[in-house]
């Protein structure tokens, strides 16, 4: 028996009980977007326009219509708006991302991960 046998439940409604976030970073993206609108780095309208543009791009590329795509679009929108603000440079951002990656790889499993652990390769 599959869900099609249920008379009234269509494909959209089957997503009704899913959790708001699949992974913690997804909540962090929305939290950062909220915090940055509060301090005026960008406006709620700019956020909505940027997110809308990323979602449209994802749909045009044929990305799956799901929560993973949604939060990937939200992260891309956030990065775009922060780059436009200028105080955090794209180069600084990518080297910081690498530094975190090394920090995780250099830290024994179970220990707290500190950014300084990623300073040396």
């Amino acid at each position: 028996m599959n869900a099609d046998d249920e008379p009234h439940i269509g494909p959209l409604a089957r997503h009704d009980d899913e959790p708001a976030f699949d992974e913690p970073w997804q909540a962090q993206v929305l939290a950062l977007a909220f915090a940055l609108t509060k301090v005026g780095v960008f406006t709620a309208v700019q956020w909505s326009d940027a997110l809308g543009a990323e979602l449209r791009g994802a749909a045009e590329r044929g990305d799956p219509d799901d929560q993973t795509t949604y939060y990937a679009a939200a992260l891309a929108a956030l990065e775009g708006l922060i780059a436009a603000d200028g105080r955090v440079s794209p180069d600084g951002l990518s080297s910081r991302t690498e530094q975190w990656r090394r920090a995780y790889l250099n830290t024994p499993h179970g220990n707290p991960v500190k950014l300084s652990a990623g300073l040396n390769t």
Partner: peptide, 26 residues
């Protein structure tokens, strides 16, 4: 490598740590 977070999680961590360092967000 199971404790290495997925790529987007690292990107968010990088964003947040830089924004906090620069005093833009708390």
């Amino acid at each position: 490598h199971s404790h290495l977070p997925p790529e987007p999680a690292l990107r968010v961590k990088a964003l947040e740590s830089l924004l906090v360092e620069k005093g833009i967000v708390d």
